[in-house]
Design a protein around this nucleic acid. Structure first.
Length: 378
RNA sequence: GGACGGGUGGGUGAGUGGCUAAAACCAGCAGACUGUAAAUCUGCCGCUCCUUGCGGGCUACGGAGGUUCGAAUCCUCCCCCGUCCA
């Protein structure tokens, strides 16, 4: 199967219902992609992910390069076979680590020198190296190496990152084209990443530069780095307006449950976020009535399901009291069940968003959802 | 009966004259988490009062006395708990 994307319907709000086809299957969009940095969505088996209806998940170039090593994964048949995941995979390029490992790296035009967070060893990640790794991993969608900057960042700083990101995108594209045969997944696609901080002119400029390079898909990066949600949406919409309508658009690293529909309304087709899994492990559960901190004492005797409106395995089977107990007792099952529910909840939202676009009432869905979240427990 | 060692806040356990309402860890309570250096991190954690302040009062380091300007820390006696000797 070759990579292609088809917009099935565009909502008056700008939201798109679509279908992405990758070498490993179909992805209904708008899609939420759980994050599986190190070749595992923490707390969930691949079987569970399949049962939850996950169609695409993330892996991380930087992490898998450091451990177990991309050549090891290549020898084992690529990331899909290595982790026994038959569905689609998108790999991040290491660009986010340019941001999050600020204390452990040095950026130059040539690339990024990282000190491994595992053993302190030095590694030089260039655009070419990032692609070389991703070709070995054989993700369905690789990402260009970008420079993700902090918030706030002034115009000059953001402009420099835009310039560098464009140069790196070109190098990534050229290297990927020249070495396509080295991929463990024939037909692997490469997405570019729009930067520009919170400066609309730079977002537009970045998008145009990348569109000129003709990528099969485009991401908007550098959002959800601490700025207010309204600004994120504004930047996502600004970038999306410059992007070709027939290519998938992906906002990286978002968002909260109540934010997902807003990005979709900006014309976004794909999102990923660590929140459902990370927060699950930290006892923060997302429900249709808002956040539930399952470690709170008020749940000690609560026999109700976590979310009465959720039909996931956890909500069908276990009480809040039990989930709290597992968390308090530091039991592994707490992470497993909490992650299961949170991912199910995010996927459920996306399903409802797709349905709402199909029915043409995304705006209604969005405001209803928001209202229920804010109303909290009844 | 004798010789040592020890009794500290819910637990373990530091502290051996003032900087100690008493380290640290655990437990408990609450909060945070947005392309994962995260099963992590932060705050609170004797009682009480208010004008919520690096505020006031009270209680507290087995018990009772004492020394001292000042004691969890020094002295005396007593009570417990360990180990060893009879």
């Amino acid at each position: 199967m070759d990579f292609h994307f088809k917009v099935l319907k565009t909502d008056p709000t700008g939201a798109r219902l679509g279908r992405l086809t990758t070498p490993h299957g179909v992805v209904d969009t708008p899609a939420f992609m759980p994050v599986g940095t190190a070749g595992t969505v923490k707390g969930l088996t691949q079987q569970a992910l399949g049962e939850l209806g996950v169609q695409v998940l993330l892996g991380n170039t930087y992490h898998l390069y450091l451990r177990p090593g991309h050549e090891t994964i290549r020898r084992l048949g690529g990331l899909h076979r290595f982790m026994a995941w038959p569905g689609s995979i998108l790999t991040d390029s290491g660009g986010f680590q340019v941001f999050s490992l600020a204390d452990l790296r040095k950026v130059t035009d040539e690339g990024v020198v990282f000190r491994s967070h595992l053993d302190g060893s030095e590694h030089f990640l260039t655009p070419e190296k990032s692609i070389e790794i991703q070709l070995a991993l054989g993700s369905d969608i690789a990402m260009v190496l970008d420079e993700c900057i902090e918030y706030p960042a002034d115009h000059a700083r953001a402009a420099a990152a835009v310039k560098r990101t464009a140069e790196w995108a070109r190098r990534c594209r050229d290297y990927a084209q020249a070495n396509a045969g080295a991929s463990t997944t024939p037909g692997q696609a490469l997405f570019a990443i729009v930067q520009g901080g919170m400066h609309a002119d730079l977002r537009r400029e970045s998008a145009r530069q990348l569109v000129d390079m003709d990528f099969p898909g485009y991401a908007v990066g550098g959002l959800a780095v601490g700025e207010p949600h309204g600004l994120s949406c504004e930047m996502a919409a600004t970038a999306a307006a410059e992007l070709p309508k027939d290519r998938p658009r992906y906002v990286m690293g978002v968002g909260l449950p109540e934010q997902l529909a807003n990005f979709v309304g900006c014309g976004i087709d794909m999102m990923d976020c660590v929140l459902p899994t990370r927060n699950a492990r930290n006892g923060c559960l997302f429900t249709s009535a808002g956040r539930v901190n399952i470690k709170n004492a008020i749940y000690a005797d609560d026999s109700r399901p976590l979310d009465e409106r959720c039909s996931c395995m956890v909500c069908r089977t276990y009480s809040r009291a039990y989930l709290r107990h597992l968390f308090q007792a530091n039991e592994i099952l707490a992470s497993i069940l909490n992650s299961h529910h949170n991912v199910a909840f995010f996927l459920d939202i996306m399903g409802k968003i797709r349905q709402a676009i199909a029915f043409g009432d995304l705006a209604d869905f969005s405001s209803e959802f928001q209202a229920r979240m804010e109303a909290g427990e009844s």
